[in-house]
Computed example of a mutant assay.
Amino acid sequence: MSIDSAALLQTICTIRKQLTRGITVAIENFHEHYHLRNMEYYCETDCYNAPTISISPGKWGIGAFRSSMTCGTRGLLTYELQSESFALTDRLFLIIGWHVPLVGDNSFFLHVAQVESPDFPTKEAERVRVYEFLSRKKMRAGKSIFCYVSPEIVDDQKQQVKEKEDGKADNMPKSCLTVCASMATTSMANLRVEIHPYQFAQDEQKTEGTIHIAGPPQKFSFTKLMEERFANAEIKVNDALEKFLGIKPESTVKDTRKNI
């Protein structure tokens, strides 16, 4: 399996000639079992070249974002990790973020994450929330990030049997992957991301595993609070009538304590 890196480089150079301040995000998929699908992005400024919708094994994709007159560019690009060889127990996303200011150092982040919210990544508000959460720990451009994960798969025993039949019992599970990223320090930054089926040596680079991102906090509802309090009060009254008077009234609420 080979990827035409020369064509990718030529595309990046063509975009760079048209932009003066911005970023290209180039992704190469060297993993034979993973597809990058359901692309979504968030950017505070202009998207110059829309990112590739999906990236199959052995393929590459690219997107470009430029700054405005008053600020640099910062944003997030996400893909869902899917496989046609096995099913993952959790929805996992490749999440790439960047900040290219008009003045100052470029920075970026990279994560493979399980996002609890069902509205991610389709709703922009959730993409913004995830960006704000992950951007707290950005890395300065010029360094690299290596993210090695070993996701759980559905029907794991069947997968192990298949690997033994293939003579691969001693090798790394097919669901494992390493995602690595590096970012240029130039004004027209290139953020390069690669997906590999093996684990890199953990030198001095920042290394991350799968992270979990909780859903958004629930909004306070006074109506819901009062309904819960009235329900609890009715349950207590019914318990007292049954205990002291032998009366078992028909409750209008479900007593979750008794699983009825």
Results as ranks from 00 to 15, higher is better:
Ile211Trp: 02
Met172Ala: 08
Thr45Ala: 13
Leu94Tyr: 00
Ser54Thr: 03
Met1Trp: 02
Gly142Asn: 05
Gln18Phe: 00
Ser221Val: 04
Met172Ile: 15
Pro173Gly: 03
Arg16Ile: 07
Gln157Asn: 09
Met39Phe: 01
Thr210Tyr: 05
Glu152Ser: 12
Met226Pro: 02
Asn190His: 10
Trp98Gly: 06
Glu163Tyr: 04
Arg140Gly: 08
Ala6Glu: 15
Met1Phe: 11
Lys236Thr: 10
Pro121Gln: 05
Phe30Lys: 00
Leu88Lys: 00
Glu163His: 09
Gln114His: 13
Lys137Ser: 15
Ala233Lys: 05
Gln18Lys: 14
His212Cys: 03
Ile195Ser: 01
Val112Thr: 10
Thr24Arg: 08
Ile153Pro: 07
Asn259Thr: 07
Thr207Phe: 12
Ile145Tyr: 09
Glu32Phe: 11
Ser83Tyr: 00
Ala141Val: 11
Glu44Tyr: 09
Val103Gln: 10
Gln157Pro: 04
Ser2Pro: 10
Lys206Leu: 15
Gly104Asn: 09
Asn238Asp: 02
Lys248Cys: 09
Val128Lys: 14
Ile96Tyr: 06
Phe30Ser: 07
Thr52Asn: 00
Tyr131Glu: 08
Ala233Glu: 08
Ser2Leu: 14
Met226Ala: 14
Ile260Trp: 06
Lys243Pro: 00
Ser107Pro: 05
Ser85Gln: 06
Asn232Met: 15
Glu165Asp: 10
Met1Leu: 10
Glu32Cys: 02
Thr186Tyr: 04
Ala201Met: 12
Lys243Cys: 09
Val100Lys: 10
Asn259Pro: 03
Lys164Ile: 12
Ala141Gly: 12
His111Asn: 15
Met1Val: 09
Met69Leu: 13
Ile195Leu: 05
Thr89Lys: 07
Cys43Ala: 12
His99Asp: 15
Glu204Met: 10
Gly72Trp: 06
Asp4Gln: 10
Met139Ile: 04
Ser2Asn: 15
Met39Asp: 01
Cys13Arg: 15
Met188His: 07
Pro249Glu: 05
Glu116Ser: 13
Asp170Thr: 11
Leu245Ala: 15
Thr24Asp: 04
Thr223Glu: 14
His35Met: 01
Met69Gly: 11
Val130Asp: 02
Val179Ala: 06
Val100Glu: 05
Phe133Val: 12
Ala169Trp: 08
Gly97Pro: 10
Ser83Pro: 11
Glu116Phe: 04
Gly22Met: 04
Ser150Asp: 10
Leu241Glu: 08
Ser54Ile: 07
Ile23Met: 13
Val103Phe: 14
Gly61Val: 00
Arg127Asp: 03
Arg16Met: 01
Val161Thr: 11
Val128Leu: 11
Ala181Asp: 09
Arg74Ala: 14
Glu132Pro: 09
Ser68Gly: 12
Leu92Asp: 06
Ile15Gln: 04
Val179Leu: 00
Glu228Cys: 15
Ala64Leu: 04
Ser85His: 08
Glu208Gly: 07
Glu116Cys: 01
Pro51His: 05
His196Val: 11
Phe30Ala: 03
Asp90His: 09
Glu152His: 13
Lys206Gly: 12
His99Val: 11
Tyr41Cys: 00
Glu208Arg: 15
Asn238Thr: 09
Arg192Gly: 06
Gly61Phe: 02
